[in-house]
């Protein structure tokens, strides 16, 4: 399976993402610069964290105007897997690929530590390697991770099982319904504030994030590889 890691000016988790795929997952991966206009040949796209365009105007707003975004929307429209982490999540909401928005953390602080997440939905292409209700340890690092959507959208997210992860125990940013990550209605786009790519090897303090990437590969193999 071949992954693309999108790179915008100001992305800073692109290298972590690249190594998680190449060295821990053992799959193919390439960087794709924001000026590119095609995602042909890729089977999955990863939108990494960071501060694209210095978070000018709003987090993810400038990145959403990049050339690559037209190709990304087309790619997502074809039902192929797209994962946005942290700033990547913010970009996906700005692009309208996921509902809602990420606003300033309730306590106004930049939160950087490992938190516990509960796997709310283990039936998605991103979470099939987890147990339902499993509690995992994944690092967060964000100042604007407070998920917000209107009541109607929240009802829909719950009804369609689109909430993938919630914060367990303590909610670090004030997000609505403790939401840490959501999936689109079609099930092929996941956005989350915590960083699974930073939890891909025990040597860096944990490997709970690796199962997320393994889930994507498993689903892809089942669809594409003939036995």
């Amino acid at each position: 399976m071949k992954f693309a890691v999108l790179v915008f000016p100001g992305s800073n988790c692109d290298i972590d993402m690249y190594h998680a795929i190449k060295d821990e997952l053992g799959e193919e991966v390439e960087y794709v610069w924001h000026t590119a206009t095609s995602l042909e040949g890729f089977d999955g796209v990863l939108v990494p964290g960071g501060f694209s365009y210095g978070d000018y105007l709003r987090c993810g707003a400038m990145a959403n105007q990049s050339n690559i975004m037209t190709a990304l929307k087309e790619f997502a429209g074809q039902g192929k897997p797209v994962l946005g982490v942290c700033n990547g999540f913010q970009i996906l909401t700005e692009a309208g690929l996921l509902p809602g928005a990420l606003i300033r953390n309730k306590n106004l602080k930049f939160m950087c530590r490992t938190v516990q997440l509960k796997v709310e939905n283990n039936n998605s292409l991103f979470t099939n390697q987890y147990e339902a209700g499993e509690v995992i340890n994944i690092p967060i690092a964000h100042g604007e991770g407070n998920y917000y959507c209107d009541e109607e959208t929240l009802t829909e997210l719950k009804a369609n099982n689109q909430i993938a992860f919630t914060y367990e125990g303590e909610n670090p940013n004030g997000s609505l319904a403790d939401i840490a990550g959501i999936i689109n209605k079609e099930g092929n786009v996941l956005g989350m504030m915590p960083h699974p790519e930073r939890a891909a090897n025990e040597i860096v303090g944990g490997a709970d994030g690796l199962k997320l990437f393994k889930s994507i590969v498993k689903q892809w193999r089942e669809q594409h590889v003939n036995n």
Binding site: L57, Q65, A101, Y148, D150
Partner: peptide, 8 residues
Amino acid sequence: KVLTNTVI
């Protein structure tokens, strides 16, 4: 399109 996010 750009200057505001009408969700918030």
